[in-house]
Each structure stands twice: as C-alpha cells, then as structure tokens.
Design a binder for these strands. Structure first.
Lengths: 224, 224, 224, 224
DNA sequence: AATGAATGAGCGTTCATTCAT
DNA sequence: CATGAATGAACGCTCATTCAT
C-alpha cells in the first residue's frame, strides 16, 4: 500500500545545493511575485528586497524564469514530504486520511499563502512550461492519491459511487483559494475585525475546515 | 422586497460611447490579458491582434490601464443587468432564485471565461485601484443580494441559521474558477475527450450545476 | 532723408488675410511658446488654450513651424510701423530720436514680453531658417537706422567717433532682456513688492529708461 | 570682510563621483542643449553624439532632466570656485575686484558659451525647478557679492549712492549675452571676418571688457 | 470651410541579462 | 566566487500631421 501510494506522488526534489542566499532569494522573490505578479516584479526589486547584488539572480538561478521554477520545485518537494507522511501513516482510516488531507491543504495554503498566490497566477497566465509540468504532475498525483482513498471507501461501501474527484478537489482548492484572495473581505463581512490577527487566522482555519469537511461528507455520503 | 433588492446591486454602468472599434479593442485585449496577463500583454500585442494602430489604445482609452478599467466596467455593467433580471422576476421562489443564480454564474464564467481569468489576475496581483473598487462593490452587492434571499428562506424556516455566506459564495466561485483553470485537465481525467467541444461544454455546465446546487443544499439545509 | 531711412527698415508685411481666429491662435500660441518654449508647446496645447479645433493650426498656418513664422512676421511688421513713425518725424533732433528709440524699445518689450521671450528662444535655439532670416534683417535694419543717427551726430560733432554700434545696441537689448527675464527677482531685490503691479511696471519702465539713456550718453559722449 | 564675502556665495558643490564618461556625457549634452534646446535634444541624440549606449543617460544620471541638473550643478560649482578665488584675494582693491569680476564673467561666458546658452534657455522657458533654484541662488549670491564691494566703495566715497545693482548686473550679463548670441553678426557688421577665429575672440574679449568697464565707471561714478 | 478620427514616427525610460574583473 | 558597469530590446505613450467627410 505504502509503496503504491508513493508512486502516486511525483518526485519534485531535484538536486540543487541551496545556500542561505539561495533560500533568501527564493523567499523574498516569492513575496514579491505574490504581491506584484511575476511580470510585475523586476529582478531589481528582488535584488533590493533580498539585499543581494542585481547580478546574483542570474548568477545563482540562471534567469528570472528559472528562479520561478526553482521556487516551485522547492515548495513542491516540501509538499510531497508532507503528503507522504500522511499517506504512510498506517494507523489512520481512509476517512481520517481525507480529513487530514483537507486540514493539511488549508494549513499549507494559509502558511504559504504567497506561494499559492504565485501558483494561482501561473495557472491562469501560464507561460512557464516547466512550472506547468510540475503543476500538472502535482494535480494528477494528488487526484490519484485521493482517488485511491475513495476507491478504498467505496470498496468498504462507505462512500458513494460515481464521485467526480476533480470537481470535488476543485471545490476544496477553489474554496480555500477564494478565501485566501478575499481574506480581508471575509474578515470585514463577518465582523471578525475585533479579533487579533492570530485569532482571526485560527477562526479562518476552523471555519474552512468545518465547511469543507461538511461539503466532502455531503458529496461522498459518509458519516463519521 | 424586490425593489429593495435592486438597491443591493451597484450600478457599474458609466456612460461611454463605445464604437465598434472600442468593442473590438476591448474584446481582443481581454483575450490577450487572459492568456498572457496584463503586464505580459503589450500595447503592441493588442494593436496587432485587434488590427488597429498602436496609438489607438491611448487615443481611445487614454492608457493601457484605463483600457483595463473600461473592460471591467463594461463586463460588470452587463453582469448587473443579468442579475437585475433574475432578482426582479417576481414569479420565482427564493430557492429557485438561488438555483438560477448558480446557473447564471456558471454560464457567465463559461461564456466570458477570458474575462474571469483577467478578473482572477486582478484579484491576486491587484494593482489597479479602480478595478479593485469595482470588484469590491460587485462582491459586496452580490453577497448582500444572496444574503437577502437566505434571510427570506430563514424567515420561512426553510434554511438553516448561521450561514457563512462569504464562505458559501467562495465555494461557488472557487469551484467554477478551478474548473475554468483546470478545464483541459478535467476533460482528460474524466475521459471526456471523446465528446465534441460543444458536448463537453454542456457536460461541464451540467456537472458544475448539479455539484454546486448539491453543495448549497447541503450547506443551507433545504430540500426542493 | 526720410526716404533713405525707410530703406533701412525691411518690409516684414507679407499679405496674409488674417481672420479673428488667426489672430486668436497667434496670440494664444505666443503666450504658450513664451512660457513653455516652442518644442515644449504642443499643437494640442495651442488648440485647447485658443479654444479651437486641433486641426485648425495646420489648416490655417500649414504647420506648427509656419505658425511661428507667421507670429514673427506679424509682430515685426508692427515693429516696422512703430519705427517708421519715429524716423519719419522731422521735428525731432537725432538725440531726441535716440531717446525715443530707447523708450520705444523698452515699451515694446514690456508690452509684448511674451513675444520677446519667444524671440530670445529662437535666437538661442535657432532652428527655423525663416525666423532667423527675419531676425537678421531686423537687426541689420535697426543697426543701420541707429548708425545713420549716430553718423549724423558725429557730423555735427556731438557724438564721439568710433562707436561700436552693435555692442551699444547689445547693451540696450541685453539690459532690457535681462530685466524682462529677472523681472520678479528685480522686484524682490529692490523691495518693490509693496508697489502695485501697474506701479511697479511704471517704475521698471522709468528705471530702465534712465539707466539705458545714461549708458548711451556715457558711450556716445553727448549731453542733452 | 573678505571672510564674510565667502558666505555670500552659495555652495553648489554636491558630492557626485563623476567618472570620465559622466563628464563626456555632460559636455556633449551641453553642446546639444545649447544648439537645439533641451526639448529639442533627444536622449538618442546625446547617446549618439557622446558615443555611448542609449540607456547610459538614465543609468548614469537617472533621467534626461537630472542630467540637466547635474550639468548646472557641475558648472556652477566651478563658477563658485572662480569667484571665491577673486573675492578671497586680499591684495586687490574693490575697484580692481569689480574689474576682475567683469573680465572673469566675459571669460566665463566665452569659454563656456554652450552652457550660457543653456542657462539662458532655462531662464526663459524655465521648467526644471532644481535648475531654477540653483540659478536663483547664484543670482542672489552674485548680487550680494557685488553689493558688498559697492558698499565698500561708497563708504570710501569713491562710488555714487543709490546704485541699482540688479540693473547694472543686467547690463553686464545682457550685453555679454547679446554678443554671445550675435557673435557672428557682430563679426560681420564690424568687418572682423579678416581676423582669425582666435584673434576675433581676443578682439571680442577686449571690446566687451572695455565697453562694460566703461559702463560701470559711468554708472558707479569712480575713476581709476 | 472646418473637423473628428486616425496614424507613423519617435519620445524618455526600463527591462533582464551579460561580462570583465 | 561575486559584482559593478554596461547594453540591446522593448516598453507605454505622445507627437505633428493628414484626410475623408
């Protein structure tokens, strides 16, 4: 089981000896890309914000485009590890795994919100072939992984037949993305301004988790 | 009640005498913005693709930035009219209105998919103040409109209390957006390649409609 | 004598049927050229400021360049008439004529200060051949005219020999020009701010007149 | 007294590490600005004439506008040094200092004739605030400096009372400026064409010097 | 006779990238 | 190994002028 699951997730890790400066550039550029977009961010912006020399970006990563690719590879390798840890945990039921996958996703987007904004951009304006390839592999891997869990549930007659997995994952991803985008507006509309930033973030996490889990149960037909 | 609903939707229509060439530029630039992003699209690209002189963009719209604003104003004015027609229809129950709103949204995004890609961009990379303002007004108007319907249903004891409207609308918007983004991937994964483009689009519409309506019912607690 | 003097001044009048709109454009463009320079003034600026259609400038004058030429021809024709009136006055002595020429020049520059700013520009940045030609003819005519008066005075042994006329006229023109340029600074430095605009202008005229006449007397060696 | 004079001249020197290429661009652009005006000179003109890349102007100076400002700061810092050397020379009488100031000015304008054409432009078409500020400071400093010398002469009862300093300096500046502008015409009118360029320039210098010194003496009332 | 629409040319500036050191 | 200096290409925009009506 574990081995077969492993195969479902692609290996994004590609050897690259990252120094502290590499990481510094990646993190700072991620923030800028998220805020102003890839095209709206200049190499000068990155150099200035990361406190490095202008030529370093090309020197370290080859080009602005390849910096973006490195960013994706880096973040996606981390994601792979997180997913692997969940899947390989033999003490969890498939229902528990689905719930944990939902929470993991919410947590991931909230923690790495900059990256998910960049990811969203790349999916819409898609230009970079390497990134698109990474994204496609990730999506296929993720869908197959969830598919395995659902098939397992269907065999145990605990989950409805004919589940549209891509649609369901679209709901999860889309809902979280929309809340990520409309974070301030969500806070305002629901009168959460009185909460501290940390408290609001916790509230957001809880609300999202409950909402999406409820949608999954309604779609998959299981009860906990 | 219906009249008061009218007030909930903002008026985006602002007088601008659009000639055929204005429309031509708007539509072509919309396609390019959707494909390559606002920053990734040059005025020269637009001029070439729309078959007009380079200087016409500035001549007609003032600047590339104002062209984008005009695009948003134009599309949003059309949206307003569509919404108004639904709301002002006195022969519909609130449940019917919610269902129609869902279908209208799906239809709108599928028909104007380019615009919705541009809209997504602007929400993530947001730079243009005028556009952000239009978007905020639209979102508030839309949420209040749905809120009115839900309150109506709650009064009639047909809808659960404590509905998180922004979250629910996030699910609708997010799901449709994700399927818009992953359209090709959705087609591939579900083996819809054998369908004609038109048949697939119809399938997409039907699936999305059924899925989202089901999620709404599960969230709001009503039965038709 | 009168006839010979006439020959010293060139004829700038060239037939052009000027309508009110022509005059309007000339006067408004003169103001703008004076303020922002010829290159810094756009045809759109002129059209807007003169309240006419953008195409009128080309339509009426042929081009922006020819508008400038028309402006020079117009103003210089008027100058010619003013000078002719002084020269042809047989009741004046040559000393009186020199004094009157000085006052006429001061008066002309103060009244038509915009034009003299444009004139100064054209002499420095000189580009327009037609204008340069007009200016050269004017200068030669003016110098010859003054020369005639001085020769007359020298014959009457009232004026020193070896007068450097161009230098002397340079002093007159230069002094007035400098005060025109430094008008505000002159007012401030001499504490004339308390005077009304009209009173200051009168003061300026008086001071300039006395100063330049004094310099002429010191140079030419005559006493009134 | 001499030390207090030092304070009368503003300090234009602002640290800027000028390389040879900076100087090259400054000098070449000065020529072009003098000939065609600031607005009439394109960055491409400058790049070509100075033998540098088009982007270098922005790279070195920030913008075309800031290049102009640098030009003014540079030339005016040099002027300050020249003036300081005269003022601080304790072996000169105030009359000698005035004479030397006149010669220094003539020399400066003839040597840096391009700059003085640019300066004249900026005073007439004035647009650049920084340049106007520098010019105003220079004028005030110069006038105060001369004023100090004159007051010294008045105390020694060698100079008339009630001297209009701005007017007198206007005569000096204006006369030199006019001859600068009408240089060729002056040469032609006075039949100096037979002289070599160098000989004519020397003649020009001598004539200007004698003429202006004479005007100063006539105005100030002193005798050497 | 007068003008709104349109345009080719060229503007100042910024870009990601390169390269000598 | 790291970087300051430099650059070709392209950017959004404005210009004076034209032309069909």
């Amino acid at each position: 089981m574990i081995n077969s699951n492993k195969c479902l997730i692609l290996r994004f890790i590609k050897f690259m000896a990252f120094t502290e400066k590499h990481i510094q550039i990646l993190e700072k550029s991620e923030e800028l890309f998220a805020e102003k977009g890839f095209n709206g961010t200049t190499v000068r912006d990155i150099a200035e914000y990361a406190g490095i020399n202008l030529a370093m970006v090309s020197y370290y990563f080859g080009s602005k485009e390849k910096l973006l690719e490195a960013l994706f590879r880096n973040r996606m390798a981390a994601t792979q590890i997180r997913l692997q840890n969940i899947i390989s945990n033999q003490s969890l039921s498939f229902i528990q795994k689905i719930d944990i996958l939902i929470d993991e996703f919410i947590d991931r987007v909230i923690q790495k919100r900059c990256f998910y904004k960049v990811m969203l951009q790349e999916q819409v304006i898609n230009k970079n072939k390497e990134v698109i390839k990474l994204l496609k592999d990730y999506k296929i891997g993720y869908a197959k992984l969830v598919s395995t869990l659902i098939v397992e549930g269907q065999k145990a007659k605990k989950i409805k037949k004919d589940i549209d997995i891509v649609m369901l994952l679209g709901t999860m991803t889309g809902t979280v993305t929309q809340i990520l985008i409309n974070r301030d507006y969500y806070r305002e509309f629901n009168d959460y301004k009185k909460l501290s930033d940390a408290a609001f973030e916790q509230k957001l996490r809880t609300n999202l988790s409950a909402h999406i889990k409820h949608l999954f149960k309604a779609t998959l037909g299981y009860e906990q």
